[in-house]
Design a protein around this nucleic acid. Structure first.
Lengths: 342, 342
DNA sequence: CGTAGCCCTGCAAACGTTGCCAGGTAACGT
DNA sequence: ACGTTACCTGGCAACGTTTGCAGGGCTACG
């Protein structure tokens, strides 16, 4: 054995057999004499041989048993829940998952897709950026999640964005609010478009006009949303309620609202882990984000298995949940914890 | 071209050149006549050829440009932050990251490690389970995160668990509490052991005895922690404060405390996204979880580059942060949001 | 005009594995 | 005794790529 890992040839030489026999021991192990097998197994153990699955993949008919997952940012709980859902299904199919963070950069998305295709993943699950995907007609099974791809018919798993946003905003309208702000992210992203449409629909149904100055888009981070809402609250006629596009927007909006000590109702898309413990009531559009990943992966493995049906679209239902408004604050006295915050 | 993807042979035949020339065009592209190169590039475009990186890896001296990451559960924000930190560094080194969820199952961990070694990852980053790792002496660069491995010297990136827990509990002691409960997870896991030690040390320094009945271990989910704390609060002599082992324990403890309307101080390890918006003050041991992943990946790539120094241990410092105790609840009126919670 | 050097190109041998085919031996039935 | 069968084993060719080597044509230069 040279510099690297031992190969089947090393094992074969060490056990005094041919590579074919070693291969048989490593795999099916039929048609191998007990004594021979023991010798080979001993050689495998002493050399610490591990089959090279890369080389194995090269043989015709073999696959990499790997799927690719492209999300915006794995540290965002929404996307990591998707990742977990995907991996649960992948594991059942004995596949590994390669995760790529696109950072909402379509160039990076394109690079990652190419890289993964070059590594011959068996399929790809993509939360697409705003880019065009018409060049992806490529034979690689492909499922999109959360957003419809541009210029390409393909399996897609979506939330009922319009309905979810509409119901949440309708709830704010029904509470008597007339100036309802919208805080959102990239206005070119599918979910943003749909949720804004739901917002507008709810306003119209409630007999309210669409005031462009109450709509703040292109916020990407929690800090962006915080700043946007802080700015809104500083208006002479501040909004009476805010609808937040997604979880980051909700967190930023809550921070701004709390800092200002404002009496503002919040509704938002996506759940928040500690929302139940907030004293202010918030209305959230909730669902099982892992379900998006699971459904997408199930579709993908059907395609990998050879399913040739026309592309399907699955819509995962959302619920409207009243969160927060916890009674605990009544009982709890507020003490300032005497700890310097660093 | 047969059933599958086009190969360099297909491109070569289509362009009327040899595979060698195709390879040169795809890679360095030196020593190729302009006209020839154009023909090859045209063939690549029409056939939609993508180089097979699996086959490429087989050549001597080539690597997979992939690293493996084993965490407990990617949908836990702590681990997904690590994953993001790892991937940031991996991306700088032009590597992809394969993520495996061990689910704190050492058998599954072992399987995943073997699978990844067989796929010839260039290195592995592992948040180890309680299992023994002495069989991993294998030549694959390996870095452990968050917990020390059993029976194997290797690079490790840790938090200052004892100190972090000790300072948090000391803060509770200084606030005058005498019955301070401990809610934790698997008592065999390194972090649990260390944090419990920090808890005990703080009690001793504060002149308090160690009351085993106030220590609730082996909680794995938010619901477990909720139940444990609910149980503690039902005692005739309930604790005056709770220290929570990790983020899930903190969430469960908060839920129990809020539901009971109890006046209980909470301190916990790990940050919580909305902690700032809680009306109850909480003391959290905070740090940058992504930093754990970044440091681990940096160590790993040094090893991959051939670093042969003795194993290092990096400790990431934690801070004590006062969170919650938000003033907003004073300004905000509590209204029950008229939405059925499903 | 010879030769050294450069540019361009192709052949063929790897990389580590699997699977087809063939050969050899032993057991067994007729 | 002989054919059949089952079992065990090894040789060899592929999978798709890269690369060392070689060769042919051309230019430059002595």
């Amino acid at each position: 054995m040279g510099s690297g890992r031992p190969t089947m040839h090393d094992v074969a030489r060490s056990a005094g057999v041919s590579v074919t026999t070693v291969s048989r021991v490593v795999n099916d192990a039929r048609h191998v004499h007990g004594e021979t097998r023991r010798r080979v197994e001993a050689a495998i153990a002493t050399l610490n041989f591990q089959r090279n699955d890369i080389a194995r993949t090269l043989r015709p008919g073999q696959t990499t048993s790997t799927i690719g997952l492209l999300i915006e940012d794995v540290s965002n709980p929404f996307y990591s829940a998707i990742a977990r859902g995907v991996d649960d299904v992948a594991e059942r199919h004995q596949h590994l998952t390669v995760v790529g963070n696109t950072r909402l950069d379509s160039g990076r998305e394109r690079d990652l897709i190419r890289t993964m295709i070059r590594r011959r993943v068996d399929g790809l699950i993509v939360v697409p950026t705003a880019a065009d995907h018409s060049d992806l007609h490529d034979g690689v099974p492909l499922v999109f999640v959360d957003r419809v791809p541009a210029g390409l018919p393909a399996d897609t798993v979506l939330l009922d964005n319009v309905r979810g946003a509409r119901r949440a905003v309708t709830h704010l309208v029904d509470a008597g609010h007339r100036r309802i702000a919208y805080v959102g992210g990239d206005p070119r992203v599918h979910t943003g478009v749909k949720r804004l449409a739901g917002y507008q629909r709810a306003l119209r149904a409630g007999g309210l006009g669409y005031d462009r100055s109450l709509v703040r888009l292109d916020n990407h981070t929690v800090a962006d949303a915080d700043a946007a809402v802080t700015d809104l609250l500083a208006r002479p006629d501040p909004p009476q309620a805010v609808f937040a596009d997604n979880n980051r927007m909700s967190v930023g909006a809550l921070q701004a609202i709390f800092r200002a000590g404002a009496r503002i109702d919040l509704a938002g898309f996506d759940d928040l882990e500690l929302a139940d413990l907030l004293t202010v009531p918030v209305t959230l559009v909730t669902y099982q984000p892992a379900e998006l990943g699971r459904r997408a992966a199930e579709l993908l493995f059907q395609r990998i298995a050879g399913d040739r049906q026309p592309p399907r679209r699955i819509v995962v239902r959302t619920e409207l949940s009243a969160r927060g408004g916890s009674r605990a604050h009544r009982g709890a006295t507020v003490r300032t914890a005497g700890v310097a915050a660093r």
